[in-house]
Amino acid sequence: MMKAAATLLAGVLGVAAFSVHAATREELRREREAIEAEHARRAEACKSQFVVTPCLDRVRIEKQKALSGVAAQENALDAAERQARADARSKRLADKAATVEGAASAAAATPSEPSPGPAPRKTPKPRQKKAEVPDRSAQEEAKRADFEARQREIEAHRQKVEERNAERARNKPAPRPLPPPASASSR
């Protein structure tokens, strides 16, 4: 899979440009591996100290700074490859357009049968009447009536619930009074 991508990229970018980019990528890969190895070595050295976390944090920050330079170079290389692909595609499209345009001009330059005159005009088709749109006002009225009936049902139910709750509150026995507090002198 990687070879197919490399072959395709070589065809698009040109063999010379691809070999330069491949060499640069390989160099960046080696540099990244060296930074990773150095980070791993320094992290192991941190583990022998009494206070490990601050040491590991310093090593991690230094690794990120070192890798940011490599990442910036990789991003620049990616951007250059994208631009080269875009340029190659633009060139292919321009060549194709020129070929099509050349073929069209060659066809126009070669005399063909003389035209019999202006093309016959097409007679416009008679317009068909649109299908009758069903009257939606009747449907809307029916829906509105259903909605209002449902609202009345909801209101009637709410009133029944309120009446039932009021009846229960009336029939509920009064709570018993609290016992008198104990006197303070009995202690």
Rank of each mutant, 00 (worst) to 15 (best):
A37E: 10
L8Y: 04
A184N: 10
T99F: 05
L13N: 02
E132I: 08
D87L: 13
V70Y: 14
P54K: 03
A184S: 14
E101R: 08
S48M: 11
D87I: 08
S105I: 06
A174I: 11
A22N: 00
D57R: 06
E27F: 08
E33Q: 02
A142C: 12
E132Q: 08
K172N: 04
A106Y: 00
K143A: 14
I61N: 04
A149I: 14
R41E: 13
E26S: 04
K3P: 11
R29K: 06
R29H: 03
A86N: 09
R152G: 09
K143S: 09
Q49R: 14
S68V: 00
A79G: 10
A71L: 08
A166R: 11
P120R: 00
A169Q: 11
A149M: 15
M2Y: 07
A182I: 10
A71Q: 13
E101P: 04
A23K: 03
A103M: 14
S48R: 13
R29S: 00
L67F: 12
E38F: 07
R136I: 09
L13R: 01
D95C: 14
S186I: 15
A45F: 08
F147G: 05
A43Q: 05
A94V: 10
H157E: 09
R25P: 00
M1K: 01
A88T: 15
R85F: 09
A34Y: 05
A169K: 11
K3H: 04
A40Y: 06
A23S: 04
K130C: 04
V100W: 11
R144I: 12
K3C: 06
Q83N: 15
A108L: 06
N165C: 08
G11H: 02
